[in-house]
């Protein structure tokens, strides 16, 4: 009896222990993915398997605009975030009085949800908002700056960029700062001793050594940028169409889950492709495989 028990434990216990996680992943991740794929390839009216949903959205100029704006926003926001995060990380690496304070303040936006962040910036930038009132009261402006409304779409993009940079640079910063702190002090001192200038030290020692962190930060930020929704929806509505916004629009407003599923699938495919690209292009060739 004891022997049998032992065999049972040896063979089945690992699976038993994995079961809760398996169920969780199956119900909350596996099923939705399969359901999305099924919906995306199902004709909304006939119920047959078809490419109708993809044909439907490809004929919609909103789709092409959404694609354009999603990439445009990512293309503007991410470089700013990475540059800023890298700059602040390098600054905080040389510890000075109050450097911890700067660190904490810089991390505050990390705790605020995207919708809340958008509302904060809406209140600052709107026609009767803090920014305009301060500038007008100081006599620097005669009439308010307009950030919102269909005719001010470029200003809307500016507002979105400001909000996104304010809100999500911290996560890039955390990853890069951690990477920078991992660089052994002696690597940098060796560069000093062997004559490298500050720029050369950054270019030839620091930058290559934080490549893995940069890669992680870029992947995370890019994936989130492909899903950008709350901030844009609150600040610009459908003036600036974006992929996740269109998904929402088709699902909630037009009550067409099939086209919405097609949108979701497209976002997923783009994300997977970009993630793959980063891993290929930014591979730190010196690391152990």
């Amino acid at each position: 009896m004891r022997g049998k028990n032992k065999i049972f434990y040896h063979n089945f216990l690992p699976y038993l222990l994995l079961l809760p996680t398996g169920i969780y992943m199956g119900v909350f991740i596996g099923y939705p993915i399969l359901e999305t794929i099924r919906l995306a390839f199902t004709h909304p009216y006939t119920g047959e398997i078809s490419l109708y949903n993809f044909q439907r959205l490809s004929r919609d100029f909103h789709f092409w605009n959404a694609l354009k704006y999603t990439f445009l926003l990512a293309g503007i926001v991410i470089p700013i975030q990475v540059t800023l995060a890298l700059g602040v990380s390098l600054l905080l690496l040389r510890r000075f009085k109050g450097s911890n304070m700067v660190l904490y303040i810089f991390l505050i936006p990390l705790t605020i949800s995207d919708v809340a962040a958008a509302l904060i910036w809406y209140n600052i930038l709107t026609g009767n908002g803090y920014l305009n009132r301060i500038l007008i009261n100081l006599g620097l402006l005669k009439s308010p700056l307009h950030f919102f409304g269909y005719q001010y779409r470029s200003m809307e993009i500016l507002a979105i960029v400001i909000t996104e940079v304010w809100r999500a640079t911290a996560i890039v910063f955390v990853i890069i700062f951690a990477g920078l702190q991992m660089i052994g002090k002696e690597y940098l001192e060796a560069a000093d001793v062997f004559g490298a200038s500050t720029y050369q030290k950054f270019r030839y020692i620091i930058l290559p050594m934080i490549k893995p962190s940069l890669q992680t930060a870029l992947i995370i930020r890019t994936l989130f940028a492909m899903q950008i929704f709350g901030v844009v929806w609150i600040l610009a509505g459908r003036d600036i169409p974006i992929l996740a916004g269109e998904t929402y629009y088709w699902q909630i407003e037009l009550k067409n889950p099939n086209v919405a599923a097609a949108y979701s699938l497209i976002i997923a495919c783009i994300s997977i492709f970009l993630g793959f690209l980063y891993i290929k292009l930014l591979k730190p060739e010196y690391l152990e495989r």
Partner: peptide
Amino acid sequence: LPPKERNISMVFQSYAVWPHM
């Protein structure tokens, strides 16, 4: 003088051989 103007070189305890080169 900063290290680079002293014409010195150094062998570190951890070697500090740059891992990416």
